[in-house]
Design a binder for these strands. Structure first.
Length: 130
RNA sequence: CAGGAGUGACAGGUAGUUGCUGGUAGCAUUUAUGCUACGAGAGGAAAGUCCGGGCUGCACGCAAGAGAGGACUCCAUCUAACGGAUGGCCAGAGUAAUCUGAGGGCAAGUGCAACAGAGAGCAGGUAGCCAUACUUCGGUAUGGUCAUAGUGAAAGGGUGGGGUAAGAGCCCACCGGUGCCUAUGGUAACAUGGGCAGCCAGGUAAACCCUGUCUGCAGCAAGAAGCAUAUGGUAUGAACUCUUGCAUCGCCGUAAGGCAAAAAUGCUUCGCUUGAGCCUGUUGGCAACAGCAGGCCUAGAUAAAUAACUACCCAACGACAGAACCCGGCUUAUCGUUGCUCCUGACUA
RNA sequence: GGAACCAUCGCCAAGUUGGUAAGGCCGCAGCCUGCAAAGCUGCUAUUCGCCGGUUCGAGUCCGGCUGGUUCCU
């Protein structure tokens, strides 16, 4: 019994869900291309594109290209996407996520983009719920 | 009150909830992670990368070698240094406050100037003017001359008088400009005078070039250390050969490395923030700035932290915009709010 | 982050020492042909990426912006 309890504790401690720290970031263009090409589900909205690849690792990548604007606008787009991601982080399945920003993201309010994000997650079947 | 000129400051704030990146302290354990508390967390340009410096590596015998290349160029001061700043001088713009200026040398040398025009670089002579000769009395030829006309961005001083066949710095007076000498003021650039000379000497050096000053080359993806992976091996003494030797050349010299190792790939750590630092006061200076005293520690990330939401304030959901080794400048972008000083005009007292 | 370079007609481009922008393809018009193609002739840059400066005069020289490309990885 004790061992089992310890195991549960271990699992909880090693379960990275709940903190963005535990998601390893996607860095190189090779990794990004891997997610783009082998993604199990993708969903497009006017504000961003969500790529989801099922795997045993926890990985995230936020992308803001030069089309969005200068460095300030790119940083803001990535921050907004990160805020969306952190909000529902404890309900996500294992896998690699890539969020690509679009120029319309900066002009729309947070509540609208939040709805779009939740809808995209549903369509990609990334929620943990049964 | 209206219109200007200069120089500063700020770059949203407050409260709450949920989060991010470092630091310090404590606790826990699987010993590199988690939790809790406290405090910190982008700019005036962080930008462009246009200059200068620190720092690091390479080079480093001659170090103040030589030349090339590059940059700058009125004077003085400031600075670690600068192509920067401050104050002046000169030139230009403006009624003025004030602003703008790559602002040495073309009386060292070489080159360049399309078109137009007679002529564009040791000046020249188209029209014109004058004299002489000839004459068919229209003019033609030769010589003198350049004031006047025309061309051009620019035609070798200006005005007046004398002079002459006609004219001309040919001569004279005044003015402008140039060189030399000199007096006064100023640290100096230079300014204001005086004398003498010669008689005018064009523009262009962001054309070559000359004078003077500076300059070794590269950049934190510099460079150092650790772990893992696979590759690779002439010779064993020297020589040969290979690789490297950070722009060029001369003389001198003949370097370094080849398992006690080298280079490649991936990851990590250091470099990485206490510094020509900031703030306040005071002293010196017209000022840039410097000295002294006291106080402060103020981002250090790594696909890259400052966010999301709610409420209120406000003329305003705020302009331009995100540190990436660090400083000093320059340049460019910028919605506004606001302090101080000065100038001109109008009106009132 | 650092370093180097480029921009000329719709496309490809020349333009050395500053003097009024060659050429080819495409397009348009004409000739030729029964009609076309080919060929021949002619036309097409008012602003040389943009803004200033030097100069009598800048595609060219100098400074600053804008856009793009390449290298270090």
């Amino acid at each position: 019994m004790l061992l089992e309890e310890q195991k549960v504790e271990k699992d909880w401690r090693y379960n990275p869900i709940g903190k963005i720290k535990h998601f390893t970031r996607i860095k190189t263009s090779k990794e990004f291309n891997g997610v783009y090409n082998r993604s199990t589900k993708t969903w497009h909205t006017p504000y961003f594109v969500l790529f989801y690849q099922r795997s045993n690792e926890y990985k995230v990548g936020f992308v803001a290209s030069k089309k969005i604007g200068n460095a300030v606008h790119r940083n803001r787009a990535k921050r907004l996407l990160r805020a969306h991601f952190i909000e529902n982080i404890d309900q996500l399945k294992r896998g690699s996520y890539v969020l690509v920003a679009k120029p319309a993201l900066l002009n729309e309010s947070y509540s609208v983009t939040r709805k779009a994000y939740l809808h995209a997650l549903k369509k990609c079947t990334a929620f943990l719920q049964n």
